[in-house]
Design a protein around this nucleic acid. Structure first.
Length: 506
RNA sequence: GCGCCUCUAGCUCAAUGGUAGAGCAUCGGCCUUUUAAGCCGCUGGUUCCGGGUUCGAAUCCCGGGGGGCGCACCA
């Protein structure tokens, strides 16, 4: 609706009603300017308090308490105005911490100032100064001794009670969504804190945050179709990265030992409740760790984050209650398929057998053995995994970058962590044998020829890097958006991405 | 890409094929402890777009667009 092609105030684009609403606000702007107040000239306001802080500090204040003397200043958006005639106004001011009621009285401010306040519209930014009291109805309230107009809102805000509900408009105009829907703002504040906490957690354990290129000659390290772009000066075709894996492992070869990147990944795929074309992934690598140490690290990080956000080990996700109490459940890949699906390892590892199983499950036949395994697992096991569960000992078939177990060559030292019915982490002991890596890349070339376009062309320089020697290393990938979904109880990835991709209008 | 649902005033929603309505917001009036303030009054429409059927279409049909959900694809 509002991805406007024309400037927003072009009246030809507006409905008559909206044009009227905007005109009324502009009239108030003009009236303010006539009184020498230009809301858009304000540059600074000295804030001494925030809404929620005051609410906490004065928690014990009652309506009978003696008058307070301490003066506070806060700034925010005017979100509701209740006028009691021309001489008294109650209103709500929202700042980044929450809401505080203010009380504007002619007895305190004088006639002219109250008349000036009367020119404000919902959505305007103001700075208010005064002392607090508790109203008869029980709300902490700032008695306004003075105020400043800090900015003007010229566009009509959504319904004060229902807020903005239309999902499309919420995503396209997230600024309105954030301004009026408190839960939305809370989700993104939580996201930011979760990401900061993840960084702190990794930094504390000696990991270096590294930044590797987003644009690459060949996007590798995962199976996905990349976005293509182009460098003009070099007349060079480039891919946007689909993983940070290969470059981070180059850093391990280079001796940095403990590295991570918390970065944006781009995959040219469909969009649904759990997929956005750009998303954020944590990849982390630790030299001299096996997948077992990584499992411990992973478990510690997740239970720490759950405690950080929820104050305990449990959280509610949709209809489910999920416990992140350590230790998490641990099961072997083939064991769990046997347990939940009665499927045998030998049959799953046999190309003919795997397609027979797909048929019996009435799944569409996959193009490759590996894809078929993934589909079967997704159907049989994922729906059962609510509490966090490490599924380990993955088949080498679907793990082209992981090290084989010495005593079982069909299986690699890899796990995926599932919770809330989807994958939350993927980790393995990294393959560091250049000959094995070369052979697996060559095998992938065959798969690619068979029609699996998701498989990237090999990055031969990566094999070269391994030839210089990489220490034994464990690596992990964590989809941050999905983790935030679980931690903030959001059912769609678009609810945890500020500006999810939308088709253009018109 | 396929299927189902959806799009009505600035916002939230009504309207069996028969004059498009309400609440909030806006605008005007009354009110110095309200908090979805209250009371009185006035405004406000390209019913997503384009065709068609019909005496008559927000409603039915066809085509197109946006979004949501599911499937497929995919971490």
């Amino acid at each position: 609706m509002d991805d406007r092609r024309l400037p927003p105030d072009d009246s030809e684009e507006l409905g008559r009603r909206e044009a009227e609403l905007r005109a009324a606000r502009r009239a108030n702007l003009d009236a303010l300017r006539e009184r020498g107040i230009d809301p858009f000239k304000a540059t600074h306001f000295e804030i001494t308090a925030h809404a929620t802080d005051l609410t906490e500090v004065y928690a014990t204040l009652t309506a009978d308490s003696p008058p307070q003397t301490e003066v506070h200043s806060l700034a925010g958006r005017l979100m509701a105005v209740r006028k009691m005639g021309k001489k008294a106004i109650w209103a709500d001011v929202w700042d980044r911490t929450g809401r505080l009621q203010i009380y504007v009285q002619e007895d305190v401010l004088g006639h002219d100032a109250v008349a000036l306040f009367d020119l404000l519209d919902i959505g305007d930014f103001i700075g208010v100064t005064g002392t607090v009291f508790r109203s008869k109805k029980g709300d902490l309230t700032l008695r306004v001794a003075s105020f400043e107009v800090l900015s003007k809102s010229l566009a009509p805000p959504p319904d004060k009670w229902h807020g903005l509900v239309d999902v499309e408009k919420r995503y396209r105009q997230r600024y309105i969504d954030l301004a009026v829907n408190e839960q939305v703002r809370e989700t993104f504040i939580k996201r930011s804190k979760i990401v900061a906490e993840i960084r702190r957690f990794c930094d504390e354990r000696g990991f270096l945050e590294c930044e590797t290129p987003v644009m690459l000659h060949v996007a590798g390290g995962a199976t996905a179709r990349p976005f293509r772009t182009h460098h003009h000066a070099l007349d060079l075709a480039l891919d946007m990265r689909i993983a940070t894996e290969l470059n981070l492992k180059r850093l391990i070869v280079g001796g940095l030992e403990r590295v991570y990147e918390l970065g944006r990944i781009f995959r040219n795929e469909g969009i649904d409740r759990t997929h956005n074309p750009e998303f954020t992934m944590l990849e982390l690598y630790a030299a001299y760790w096996s997948v077992h140490e990584m499992m411990d690290f992973n478990e510690e990080m997740f239970s720490h984050l759950v405690r950080h956000v929820h104050g305990g080990d449990e959280l509610v996700y949709g209809e489910r209650r999920i416990s992140f109490k350590r230790p998490f459940k641990r099961v072997k890949y083939f064991d769990v398929l046997a347990e939940y699906g009665g499927l045998k390892r030998d049959e799953l590892l046999d190309p003919a057998g795997v397609f027979r199983i797909q048929e019996s499950l009435r799944l569409p036949r996959s193009q490759t053995h590996g894809q078929a395994l993934d589909k079967i697992f997704e159907r049989i096991v994922e729906p059962r995994l609510v509490d966090p569960t490490f599924v380990h000992d993955y088949p080498v078939l679907i793990s082209p970058l992981a090290k084989r177990k010495p005593d079982d060559l069909d299986v690699v030292d890899r796990y995926e962590l599932f919770g809330a019915n989807f994958e939350l982490a993927n980790a393995f002991t990294e393959l560091n044998d250049p000959d094995d890596q070369r052979a697996r890349f060559e095998a992938q070339i065959q798969e690619r020829r068979k029609g699996d376009e998701e498989i990237p062309p090999p990055d031969w320089d990566f094999v070269n890097a391994l030839e210089y020697g990489m220490p034994p290393t464990a690596g992990i990938g964590i989809g941050i958006d999905r983790l935030v979904m679980v931690l903030t109880d959001n059912a769609s990835i678009h609810e945890v991405i500020l500006f999810p991709l939308q088709r253009p209008l018109g």
